[in-house]
Design a protein around this nucleic acid. Structure first.
Length: 456
RNA sequence: GUGGUUGUAGCUCAGCUGGUUAGAGCGCUGGAUUGUGGUUCCAGAGGUCGCCGGUUCGAACCCGGUCUUCCACCCCA
């Protein structure tokens, strides 16, 4: 006996009903991407290591899946690094390729490489899997899909406004109500760091702040102290911990806090424009909120930062995120191209929709009718009707083998096929078909036209 | 990468402080029923108890390692 087959940790097989539901979500997202003027591209599943390494911070590098070189890679490796068991030094020598970690960096590479064919501003969308060598847990996989839409080549804040609308539109079409789009701004965070005199600790400070709703005010302060942020600086942050009220009240508080920081004030102006414009245009089902503790993807975001939370009743991390990155293409040698984009986490949206029972029943409808196979002559007769029905766009099947009828019936039953068509000698003689409704058990003899009409 | 958790039939799970031949429900196969499924009845097949090693007269059960599951941290969709 061979050993039990298995798949790698954090990966999944998708069975028919799952694929159908995933395709439904992709379909909705894709349609909205198109409506908002985005064009599709695809990039390879693996890139040259140097394209990816160093773009996501130290933590990110660790989570990138490296691909071993072909051939006798150890012979070509540096013997000193090998002997010293220096993994970091050795990795660069035995691995030149890596699986993509997200869609944004490969997109930046694409833009630089194809800059002469691209007309700016360029709006593209991309729906492909990405890989992370992370430990799996709820809603976290090592292979998962991202659905990204980005615009490069425009600094206009109208892009941010449109992305908020795009989120709202997709979640409305998925019937996923009460999502919360949280927005922050890197400039505002820089401003705060500036005001409290901790510019050099921006990342540490924001990472700690990000945990506010999870671990609470005291623990956040403790973490900040551990990272070397002064007591005086933490005292100045006090208003941030208790920022409440309407969006305009929050903006007012922030404006006071950041009065001496030009960058910070600019961040507030940007947020205010987006918030006011959205308020005027109105969202259909989502809510836009300002959240100064939001600090994801800080390694490349420079302006707006977005994150979408699932409806509160579902315990799930974010189902989408994004932001503006002013110089992502700079690292690949193309300066002064501003980009902004958002991502939908397909796998998590799926889990949320499943938990809330939001998939429409029609999505799961498969084969409409099964023709019972009574033998060769009968199958030939049945097959003519099968072809006619398929030409009409109706999904039907002929059971391939002339086995016992009970077996064929139970096959239809298990596959949830709603109708069975019987074509035996008596039907052949009269040129009819016996149509059986599997739910009610009723059956009637019909001609081909009636058959088509009944199954449509 | 750190800490915890899980693994017994295709699936969901029992299995006492270590004791002879490891059980149930569901599913599967055949029959009751050779032109009628979903209900019922009868019979049957299916397990090196995740894997490797150790302790013991004896291990599904105890110990170590490893893989896997799920959860938390780091980080993140």
């Amino acid at each position: 006996m061979s050993t039990k087959p298995s798949i790698p940790k954090g990966t999944r097989d998708f069975s028919p009903s799952e694929v159908v539901k995933r395709n439904y979500i992709i379909d909705v997202i894709q349609r909205d991407f198109g409506r908002f003027g985005f064009q599709p591209i695809e990039t390879p599943s693996f890139e040259n290591s140097e394209t990816l390494m160093g773009k996501y911070g130290e933590e990110g590098d660790r989570l990138i899946f490296k691909i071993l070189n072909s051939g006798d890679y150890l012979r070509k490796a540096d013997t000193d690094a090998l002997k010293a068991q220096d993994s970091a030094a050795l990795t660069g020598q035995i691995s030149e390729k890596a699986l993509r970690y997200d869609l944004t960096v490969p997109f930046a590479r694409y833009v630089v490489q194809h800059q002469n064919e691209i007309t700016f501003p360029f709006k593209r969308y991309q729906i492909q899997p990405v890989w992370r060598a992370d430990r799996p847990q709820k809603g976290r996989f090592r292979e998962f899909y991202q659905c990204d839409a980005d615009v490069v080549g425009s600094r206009s804040l109208w892009q941010e406004v449109e992305f908020v609308q795009l989120y709202d539109s997709v979640f409305t079409h998925l019937n996923l109500r009460n999502t919360v789009i949280k927005m922050n701004n890197r400039k505002l965070l820089s401003g705060i760091a500036e005001v409290i005199g901790a510019e050099d600790k921006l990342i540490d400070f924001t990472v700690a702040l990000d945990k506010l709703d999870k671990i609470g005010e005291e623990k956040v302060k403790t973490e900040m102290r551990e990272k070397g942020i002064s007591e005086a600086a933490i005292a100045k942050l006090e208003p941030l911990f208790h920022i409440t009220g309407t969006v305009s009240e929050k903006i007012k508080t922030l404006r006071e806090l950041l009065a001496t920081s030009e960058t910070g004030l600019q961040g507030i102006d940007e947020m205010e424009f987006i918030v006011e414009t959205i308020a005027e245009l109105e969202l259909k089902s989502a809510t836009l909120e300002i959240d100064v503790t939001l600090a994801r993807g800080l390694n490349y975001y420079t302006g707006a930062i977005f994150e979408v939370s699932a409806p509160e009743e579902v315990k799930m991390g974010s189902i989408g995120g994004g932001g503006r990155y002013d110089d992502l293409t700079g690292i690949f040698g193309l300066k002064d191209i501003s980009g902004v984009g958002i991502s939908f986490g397909l796998d998590r949206i799926y889990l949320v929709m499943e938990e809330l029972g939001l998939f429409p029943k029609t999505v799961l409808e498969g084969t409409r009718a099964l023709f019972v196979n009574f033998g060769e002559a009968e199958a030939r007769y049945a097959m003519r009707a099968v072809s006619a029905l398929r030409d009409e766009g109706i999904s039907v099947d002929l059971y391939p083998d002339p086995v016992k009828m009970g077996k064929q019936m139970s096959y239809a039953d298990k596959r949830d096929i709603p109708y069975v068509v019987l074509t035996g000698v008596s039907e052949m003689e009269s040129g009819t078909y016996t149509l059986k409704n599997m739910k009610s058990g009723e059956q009637q003899q019909v001609d081909i036209d009636q058959l088509v009409r009944s199954l449509k």
